[in-house]
Amino acid sequence: MMLIQCPHCGARDVSEFTYGGPADVARPADPLATSDAQWADYVYMRDNPRGPHDELWQHSAGCRRWIAVRRNTLTHELIATAEPGKLPPR
């Protein structure tokens, strides 16, 4: 069972949160200059790490704000949480 440290509400049960996917995938800055292959890479391709993973969660049954979470995908250990974009560098 995972307890996620919401930066706004404190430690809460994982069932209060909704998963939102990887946090370290950046949308192409200039859509008009982005090729089809680059779009496909952004939309579909994943690093899928086995270990620390930066991801977005919404505290949907709490403060409803989006947060960034660094979590180990193998052990489910919660390493850090922060406002989106504010996770410390790995």
Partner: peptide, 13 residues
Amino acid sequence: DMYNSYGQLSNLP
């Protein structure tokens, strides 16, 4: 479980 995982773990929810 609705989040990325390689843990062949059981979680209660």
